[in-house]
Simulated assay, not measured.
Amino acid sequence: MVEPAGPNVSYAIEISRYSGGYNQTDILNELSFHVPMGESVAILGENGTGKTTFFRALLQLLPKQTGELRILGRQVLSSRDKQWVRSQIGYVPQTQGAGKFPISAEDSVLLGRWGKSFSWGIRPSRNDRELSKYYMEASEVSKDKAATIEVDNTPYGYIKAARKLAAIWGTEAEESNWEQDLGQLTAEIEQAARQHETSKKKVISQVYMTPLLKWLGYEVVGEFGPDEMTPTQLAKLAELKPDLIIDNVHMPQGFSEISKETKRIELRSYPSAEQRSVEDILRHNAEQLGLSN
Score class of each variant (00 low, 15 high):
N8K: 15
N8T: 12
I13Q: 05
G20W: 00
Q24R: 13
E39L: 05
S40K: 14
G50C: 03
F54R: 01
A57V: 04
L59H: 04
P63S: 02
Q65W: 07
Q65F: 06
R70V: 03
V76P: 11
F101E: 14
L111R: 10
W120E: 11
P124T: 11
R126S: 07
R126E: 03
L131T: 07
M136S: 15
K145Y: 08
T148A: 13
V151N: 12
D152I: 07
R163T: 13
A167C: 12
G170E: 09
A173S: 15
A193H: 03
R194F: 01
H196A: 12
E197K: 13
E197P: 03
E197M: 02
T198M: 00
S199V: 06
K202F: 02
V207C: 03
Y208E: 03
T210C: 03
L212R: 12
K214A: 02
V221G: 01
D227A: 08
E228T: 04
E228W: 07
T232I: 06
K236H: 01
L240A: 00
P242N: 09
M251Q: 14
S256M: 11
S256L: 11
S256G: 09
E261Y: 14
R268D: 01
V278H: 13
E279P: 00
L282V: 10
R283V: 08
H284S: 10
